[in-house]
């Protein structure tokens, strides 16, 4: 099968445990206002890649992976190409290489998606917003699919790191974050809730792609504020 890859990052050390080889897949169903990779949105764009070729490429990094490392499938939305990734995952398994899925969960819970999630070392799940209205407003889609994916991860007991992007004036307060945590409390699968600060480093991509940047006047999140909010979240999730 052929998949579509936007780009590679051979040292994606912070996207999961151990050293990770990052594969950014092309195509995303969401249109998040704060996305810093709008160049990965378009489906069927990117580099057409055979499963075997990708597995071979990832295998080159086997010496770095140790026990916890492996590939990280990110994007774009990797679950849009779940069937193809299942094929890649099978090939990787033969090499003893594991993978992490970095997803927004905004896809139907098909068999292929389930297989892919169950086989992962762990999952990074973005919770974009705490409610349906904000989801529709800032991502262009509802949140039901994401919650269904979260429920499935809970059902199979898959270690899941939740990621929340904190954007100045939109959700940079304890109250705003509390609303997110309502979906997460009591979930055994959630190992950690990680806050990511909004940054402006992807702005130039909007310009060069000619896409409207809805947050063009929003500043980057103050790192000190992020640290304070992270401490709050950690305390809440204890």
């Amino acid at each position: 099968m052929t998949g579509y890859v936007h780009s590679f990052e051979s040292l994606a050390a912070v996207d999961g445990d151990g050293l990770r080889y990052g594969v950014f897949l092309a195509g995303c169903p969401l249109r998040c206002a704060y996305c810093h990779n709008p160049d990965t949105w378009e489906m069927g764009a990117g580099q057409a890649t055979e499963a075997e070729a990708l597995a071979r490429k990832i295998s080159r990094y086997r010496p770095y992976f140790g026990e916890n490392g492996g590939a990280t499938f990110s994007g774009g939305e990797p679950l849009l190409q779940a069937e193809w990734l299942c094929e890649v995952a099978e090939l990787l398994q033969k090499e003893g290489i594991g993978y992490v899925i970095d997803t927004s969960g905004g896809v139907p819970l098909t068999d292929a998606v389930k297989t892919l999630l169950s086989g992962a070392q762990s999952v990074l799940l973005d919770l974009k917003f705490p409610d349906e209205e904000s989801y529709l407003r800032y991502t262009g889609r509802g949140m039901a699919q994401t919650l269904a994916v979260l429920d499935y991860l809970e059902e199979i007991g898959k270690t899941t790191r939740i990621r929340i992007v904190v954007i100045p004036e939109i959700n940079d307060s304890e109250e705003a974050l509390n609303a997110y945590l309502a979906h997460l409390r009591g979930k055994q699968c959630v190992s950690e809730v990680e806050l990511l600060g909004f940054h402006t480093m992807g702005f130039h991509k909007y310009e060069s792609l000619g896409i409207e940047n809805k947050l063009s006047s929003t500043p980057a999140l103050d790192p000190a504020l992020k640290d304070r909010l992270q401490a709050f979240v950690n305390e809440q999730m204890k």
């Binding site: 050293l19 010496p63 770095y64 992976f65 490392g69």
Partner: peptide, 14 residues
């Protein structure tokens, strides 16, 4: 620290 060790081990193992 862990990751730098992994980088060094992986590089030198080759």
């Amino acid at each position: 620290v862990k990751k730098l060790v992994a980088v060094l081990d992986g590089y030198f193992a080759q």
